[in-house]
């Protein structure tokens, strides 16, 4: 991707709230960051984690608690949530990388289920009700994230939007730097041929674990930010449905492409908000999309586009 494409994307992000409903945009940014974080594992390391909701949802609970009950400022709350997700990622990752391939997916799913059970049972998370009414607070103790501006007669919560956009850009940048660093090259080497990476002297497990921790941390940052946007941390965020959804976003957009997760998150989030009237049929639609995608469309949007344009995206 060249410089102009980046400038175009950032401009799009800056102008979006004037055109699109800002809450939709913020939800999209959170899920896009989540999918980008997930893609670091599936797309660039070849590891399918089926438990990423544990980091996304886990961090949203921590941030919710820190902001609501400990009175921390939002940026510290998000930092706390992200650190927690990194720590949890270290624990889950250390266990999961002991198995490969399909077992890796099952282990992550089962470990995430422990987190789900804990979230269901402890008072810390509010159980079935979740944490409600999480305050957005003052950024750095100065900027009111609740402030609404009137632009052309429309009320817009621009402070919150630009904060979320900044968090997203930070996350995107961290992930992009990781992928395009020598470290990222080793990850791709592991994805392509693990035994060869081992024979070249790389400590493959350490690389996998590091990738897992970074991915978990960024997924956590996405979840933490989401808890401020919706002022809610709930069981849905830690459930296996959410883990599946992020897999779908990445798959649909294009596994192992830079912009794929963005496109995938856009598709799934739009689908969900457009079809909110169909109620639980949405599960059927999501499932159907999975099936169609796997059968006909394994490269995803960006992968197919890249093939047509004969270049990497």
């Amino acid at each position: 991707m060249n410089r102009y494409a980046w400038i175009g994307l950032i401009t799009l992000g800056l102008l979006a709230p004037y055109v699109v409903y800002p809450v939709f945009m913020m939800k999209l940014l959170c899920f896009a960051l989540f999918a980008l974080a997930f893609n670091l594992l599936l797309g660039y390391t070849g590891l399918l984690s089926f438990g990423h909701a544990a980091f996304f949802g886990g961090a949203s609970y921590i941030t919710g608690q820190l902001v609501k009950n400990s009175g921390l400022t939002p940026e510290l709350g998000i930092l706390g949530g992200t650190l927690f997700a990194a720590l949890l990622g270290y624990v889950v990752g250390s266990l999961a990388i002991r198995r490969q391939g399909i077992y890796f997916a099952m282990v992550t799913l089962a470990l995430a289920q422990i987190v789900y059970f804990i979230a269901l049972k402890t008072p810390f998370t509010g159980g079935e009700d979740g944490l409600q009414g999480i305050p957005r607070g003052l950024l750095f103790g100065l900027v009111d994230l609740n402030r609404v501006y009137t632009v052309h007669g429309r009320p817009l919560g621009l402070n919150l939007y630009y904060f979320v956009f900044a968090v997203f850009c930070l996350g995107f940048w961290i992930l992009h730097r990781t992928i395009h660093s020598p470290f990222g090259q080793v990850l791709k080497g592991i994805r392509e041929n693990e035994p060869r990476a081992v024979s070249l002297g790389y400590k493959v497990d350490r690389f996998k674990l590091m990738a897992f921790v970074i991915s978990a941390a960024m997924a956590g940052m996405a979840g933490a930010t989401k808890s401020l946007v919706f002022q809610l941390a709930s069981l849905t965020d830690v459930s296996w449905h959410t883990s599946g959804e992020v897999v779908l976003m990445t798959l649909l957009g294009g596994v192992g492409t830079v912009l794929g997760p963005l496109a995938g998150a856009f598709t799934v989030v739009s689908l969900e908000s457009e079809l909110s009237s169909v109620g639980s049929w949405i599960t059927v639609i999501i499932g159907g999309t999975f099936v169609v995608c796997v059968l006909l469309f394994r490269r995803g949007f960006m992968g197919e586009l890249a093939r047509l344009l004969k270049r990497t995206l």
Partner: peptide, 28 residues
């Protein structure tokens, strides 16, 4: 059958999608 020559993970993803469809229909 169509997925036999691809990565095994696709089988997992396909059957996951099917599980969502079946569960979704019955939930309705």
């Amino acid at each position: 059958r169509r997925l036999r020559k691809f990565d095994h993970l696709y089988g997992l993803l396909l059957t996951f999608g099917l599980a969502l469809i079946i569960q979704g229909v019955f939930t309705n």
